[in-house]
């Protein structure tokens, strides 16, 4: 999965151990490694799921209520919604814009 990803998004030089081992040996080693890795991964996943089963969860309605409350409490401070209180608060004023005489 990650190799395909490299090819797709980022260029990366991959080192191969083909120079050291015969092609056949390489294949054997890699099959065994993959199998081991797969088992390891599944065991970890199961352990993970067992842990997650223990979590105390809250109702979605309650969680959303809290998200809404947070937005309300901070709405006045949100300059990307409300704009700058005074134009002089804006450090990104157009440079060389017309000054009020």
């Amino acid at each position: 999965m990650s190799n395909g990803f490299h090819a797709r998004k980022y260029p990366q030089q991959r080192k191969s151990n083909a120079e050291v081992l015969s092609k056949e040996d390489c294949e054997k080693v890699s099959t065994m490694n993959k199998l081991q890795e797969g088992l390891q991964q599944q065991r970890r996943l199961i352990e993970q799921l067992r842990c997650e089963a223990q979590i105390t969860r809250m109702r979605v309605s309650q969680c959303i209520e809290d998200l809404v409350k947070y937005c309300d409490n901070w709405a006045e401070e949100d300059v990307l919604i409300k704009g700058f209180p005074k134009p002089s608060d804006n450090p990104f004023k157009e440079k060389g814009g017309c000054a009020i005489l």
């Binding site: 998200l67 947070y70 937005c71 901070w74 709405a75 949100d78 990307l80 919604i81």
Partner: peptide
Amino acid sequence: FGCNSVDFSVSGRL
């Protein structure tokens, strides 16, 4: 198309 990056405004509304 895919989304590469996300961020919230300070109130979390945007």
